[in-house]
Design a protein around this nucleic acid. Sequence first.
DNA 1: TTGTACGCGTTATCAT
DNA 2: ATGATAACGCGTACAA
Lengths: 349, 349
Amino acid sequence: MKRKITLKQIARELDVSISTVSKALRNSPEISADTKQKVQAFAKLYNYRPNNIALSLKNRKTNTIGIIIPEIVHHFFSKVIRGVELVANKRGYNVIIGLSNESFSKEVINMEMLANGSIDGFILSISKETLQLQDYHHFNETMSQGMPIVMFDRVVSDINCDKVIVNDFGGAKSAVEKLITNGCKSIALITTKDYVSVGKLRTQGYMDALNDAGFELESELILKLDDKLDYEVHLDALENEIEHLFKSNKSVDGVFAVNELYALSAMKVARKLGLEIPKDIQVIGFTDGVLSKHSTPSLTTVSQHAQVMGEKAADLLINRLETEHNENEDETYQTVVIETDLIERKSTK
Amino acid sequence: MKRKITLKQIARELDVSISTVSKALRNSPEISADTKQKVQAFAKLYNYRPNNIALSLKNRKTNTIGIIIPEIVHHFFSKVIRGVELVANKRGYNVIIGLSNESFSKEVINMEMLANGSIDGFILSISKETLQLQDYHHFNETMSQGMPIVMFDRVVSDINCDKVIVNDFGGAKSAVEKLITNGCKSIALITTKDYVSVGKLRTQGYMDALNDAGFELESELILKLDDKLDYEVHLDALENEIEHLFKSNKSVDGVFAVNELYALSAMKVARKLGLEIPKDIQVIGFTDGVLSKHSTPSLTTVSQHAQVMGEKAADLLINRLETEHNENEDETYQTVVIETDLIERKSTK
DNA sequence: TTGTACGCGTTATCAT
DNA sequence: ATGATAACGCGTACAA
């Protein structure tokens, strides 16, 4: 087992100084052709590569991006990562990931871990617990130490930094407008409790669309579900709530759900109650998932372009990292809004 | 904007030497209570944290794991990552990811990038292109430089290293046995071409089960699909092939598919042909996806326990990193086999 | 009890 | 044309 070779070893082996080796390898005109030739051949033979860690220390630049997300087993987030990774690699950066698992303390710990020199900047989406606690000190501290942050999707206006968000309001609104255009007269909303900003915005889009169309807003048609009912676990409870909604509002002929799972559950319950999709009831989900395409019937969705979000976030961060910022130049941050697309499938007419 | 504080700055500020500060912070008995108190208070005030990069350089240990996977937008791989991250964090390691995107050259480049000091060891799953080319020099080179590798799922016997694999053979066999027990008389197999080892093993499990039960092996019942037909893209082509299989073998009353998408497509085609599931035809998929649970009917699957694989791989790697290896001790590698579970849902009787 | 010197691997600057 | 030195930030063996 041969350890990785260093400049020092090459220097000793060829009986020259370390700096000569360094210069020869970087093709410095200071060095004679002879020596260059000799050193480069030797280096190639032993497959010399400069040590990243030493370079990072010297340059005070790691060329690594830290990404903190609440959950990786989630189509939306993994697509964002793919986008980040794509751009980062293209521009010479690595990506290191930290999972907050929706927990405030894990978010804080992970960020502290990475902020101590391991990375040049963060791309992150805030955990639910942090949003509930509204404790953002760790973001401010990180930034005040000169480490830039780009937030995506789950952002808060309290923090001053670059952001990439989806047009949640507009996407939701146009989805509901689609249902209205398709003839729906009584449209239900299945959403989450309000503390996650994106949920709130989507709810507003729903309301605005109804309002514009001159519909009455009926609070019984709005189902606000607890987040604990998310994902795999309490599928039954989820379906029960939806079933109750349908049963007490028999006229419902359209459903807008703020995520894929809610939309699928709605379809499942509808089928169970003997309703035909899209004849009797039409469904649209806000999502970036895989389920929609393969469900029966396939689900019409509002696409969030997660990968584009990741790419954009990475570009924003790297641009900021590589732009010379004078000390007393007042930093101006931008918020990029990604427009959604309505992908029409078989759950709407 | 205050930059991160260093030992040197604290030393200058308090008018002591750097090493005094260092010792005081590590609570060395060499230092007087007074000085310790003073230094620690100051450090706390300025929120001092040692620089990871400097520590890595000094200790020649990064406490970071590199993970190379073919694709991140994939339920199986993201679950593995979650497992790795869980264990890594618990044991004081960070995780840095590289995506090969199923490409040989990207796999090589990514590994070289990380191997130059950024990480202590690799956890990886081989890309399809690499498996086709059978070019494994980059793995051997990495290991010969003293950097350990743990492979998972897609492994090759040519390489001598720790491995974590699924019991593909056994899982497939018991799935097919289940179909037989449930009364199936004519069981089709939908699989991929053979160069991906896991596909081959699952095919063997299928054949073994049939053999044990005294069934005739009928080659028309085996559908070997091109990998290019995978995933999102050529869904139609996929379904056409399956439809052709069903139409030319009307007696088929059971299907074993080596992945989730194939299984779902089989169900879709079956429904289209007027077959009832599971009454007329039963289906089982080998998978770790989200689709199974939410399909109609929900799909009986062979669970691979992806997260456990990740956890196990991380433990293997970290154990090796932290065990003192004498120079001339012949290393002995282990292969951990994760047993599968049959998750019975509505696509079987 | 405190400080000095050294080394991790690299590059830039200055001296020879 | 080549080499010595300092510096990035840290910890530790050794000296004072």
